[in-house]
Computed example of a mutant assay.
Amino acid sequence: MTMHILIAGGSGLIGRATTHTLLSAGHQVTVAARREVEPPARARFVSMDAGSSPRCWRPARSSPSPTSRTSLGID
């Protein structure tokens, strides 16, 4: 079963390794971080600050699917 997984802190060492592992397993991955990073191929990036409201999260690269937008709280 393929899952869509949000990796908070995806720009860090563990987040990057986790992203690559999940992508290799065939999952959809959205990387969330305070600073903009170039996500691996097939991953998406959203800019976020854990201290902000989910409504402040914004897609920075490719637009998430409608399901992703709902699960991320993005209008």
Rank of each mutant, 00 (worst) to 15 (best):
G12E: 05
V46K: 00
V31D: 08
R34H: 11
V29M: 02
E38T: 15
S68N: 09
A8K: 06
I7P: 00
T70W: 09
G10L: 01
C56P: 01
V29A: 01
R42Y: 02
C56Y: 07
R58F: 12
L6S: 02
H20Q: 14
M3W: 04
G51A: 12
R16Y: 00
L13R: 09
R44F: 03
A50I: 15
R55Q: 14
S11G: 12
R34C: 02
M48A: 13
L6H: 02
R42I: 00
G10C: 04
R55G: 11
A32Y: 01
R44E: 04
L72D: 01
G10Q: 02
I5P: 02
V31S: 06
G26K: 10
S11Y: 04
T67I: 12
E36S: 08
F45K: 00
A8S: 13
T19M: 04
G73T: 10
R44A: 06
F45T: 01
P59G: 05
R58W: 08
S62I: 13
R42E: 12
D49W: 06
I14M: 15
S52G: 07
T18C: 15
P40T: 07
T30M: 06
P66Q: 09
G12L: 05
V46W: 00
V46L: 05
G15Y: 03
G9E: 08
P66F: 06
S47H: 11
T67M: 11
A8I: 15
L23N: 03
M3P: 01
L13P: 01
Q28D: 11
L23P: 02
A43C: 08
S63G: 05
P64I: 05
T30Y: 00
G51L: 11
